[in-house]
Design a protein around this nucleic acid. Structure first.
Lengths: 243, 243
DNA sequence: CGTTCCCTTGACTAGAGTCAAGCAAGGTGG
DNA sequence: CCACCTTGCTTGACTCTAGTCAAGGGAACG
């Protein structure tokens, strides 16, 4: 469950120091942030924020993965964002958010009181600049995802998703033959890709039958043919659409 | 075709003065922007920027509507943004953009040299702050659109689209019974909604048969039953998902 | 007046959704 | 330690929505 901790990691030892909203800050600005921050941790599956709930804090993801989801009245759900470490949750100037934020892993957040943070932005241009960059990056990602949701087939969606995991995994570990962790259930993947869980399952099976991937267990797989995988994504040869 | 004009509208008479990237600027900052800007105009249908083309300028939409589209190798196209007056095109820190920008109406842009603008952002916090807000607004819109693309039925997509036009039109003109201009062809609408043009046409016909809308000609319609229209969007009663 | 563009409509198809049954792994309690 | 349950996943059979292919209408324009 949700635990609030006083800040105990020094900012200059923080794993997301170079990528988060603070990345452009100088020493004085860092000292200011350091005095304001507090950490919260959430267990896998915890809801971090409910849609419509008043937004008391904004936060950077320090470790773990959180998802943003929107649910329609009848229960249809669409994931609208995947928040990896260094991503920023919440927005200055808005008192509520209109999606649910959920921890898919154990998550640690570096939190700031929303009202104080809004004042900080006016005084600290480096934070606004970095927040602008992060928002524009998110926007690029959202636009790529719109192509996937609006135009790709189920097979292309799954191939794109696997390629994404594979690229992300090889950033941390350059052995391409290593098992990759799916992190999510079939149900969560279907919400991410705009499919049903049955279709996700069938497409995994199909890609396995075609020798493109192989599952060691339900949650871990190996990409056996990276080029063939890419051919199934619908993106062009140089990865253009993802750019 | 594309015409470049020296700036001739004074910023303090500009129609988007209060909403564009300059909205937070003081007099000195405005003078700076005024000296840098130039206008470009495009005719309906002109391509403003091709995907992959080096990005020489960034710009605000002053009048008219531009679209951002991504096209897959085999021609499948998805619109990923609709740029209305005050929207900002281009992003500091990126030399190319990975979508096409097209004028759907006659469009006037207020342009700034990209490199100069990037320097400006470092010196003018009010611009970075506003750009952050605009990016976050775009992000919210993109996330709503992801729900539409991933989870809504054809009928819900069309109803949402019509409601969007209707809301936008009543902002400028509060007579709800007035003809609303579609602005786009069926083909462009289908690219916006992730459908085919035939499905768009059929859903228009269906909504007309059900007495919810009525077409005066191919491009102009009236909403006859706003409540019934909303019921078809799939969004909840208070418009929650759009929030 | 013919051509082009845009749109509508019909007939058919296919891809993904729905409903349902059952399996496997892991956890729990007797 | 075994029986039982739960959760997550797979698979099959069937349905249905939206896509595809094709024909034709009507307005606009040269």
């Amino acid at each position: 469950m949700n635990v609030i901790l006083k800040s105990h990691i020094k900012c200059n030892q923080c794993p997301i120091r170079h990528r988060a909203i603070c990345s452009r800050c100088d020493e004085d600005e860092m000292a200011m942030l350091e005095s304001m921050k507090s950490y919260r941790t959430y267990a896998s599956g915890d809801v971090i924020l409910w849609r419509g709930e008043p937004l008391e804090f904004v936060a950077s993801v320090v470790s773990g993965v959180a998802t943003l989801t929107k649910t329609m009245e009848d229960g249809r759900t669409q994931m609208v964002g995947l928040m990896l470490p260094s991503a920023f949750i919440g927005r200055p100037g808005r008192k509520v958010i209109d999606f649910d934020v959920t921890a898919t892993d154990d998550v640690t957040l570096c939190c700031f009181d929303r009202v104080k943070f809004e004042k900080l932005i006016d005084d600290t241009p480096h934070v606004a600049q970095r927040l602008m960059e992060l928002a524009l990056d998110e926007l690029d990602a959202a636009r790529d995802w719109m192509v996937l949701l609006g135009r790709k087939t189920a097979r292309e969606k799954i191939a794109t998703f696997i390629e994404l995991l594979s690229r992300h995994s090889s950033m941390n570990n350059d052995d391409h033959t290593k098992n990759i962790d799916l992190h999510m259930t079939r149900d969560q993947i279907s919400d991410y890709l705009g499919l049903t869980l049955e279709t996700v399952s069938r497409q995994f099976t199909a890609l396995k039958k075609d020798g493109i991937i192989d599952f060691s267990d339900r949650r871990h797989f190996v990409v056996k043919d990276l080029a063939a995988l890419h051919d199934e994504t619908g993106d062009d040869a140089d990865g253009g659409i993802v750019a």
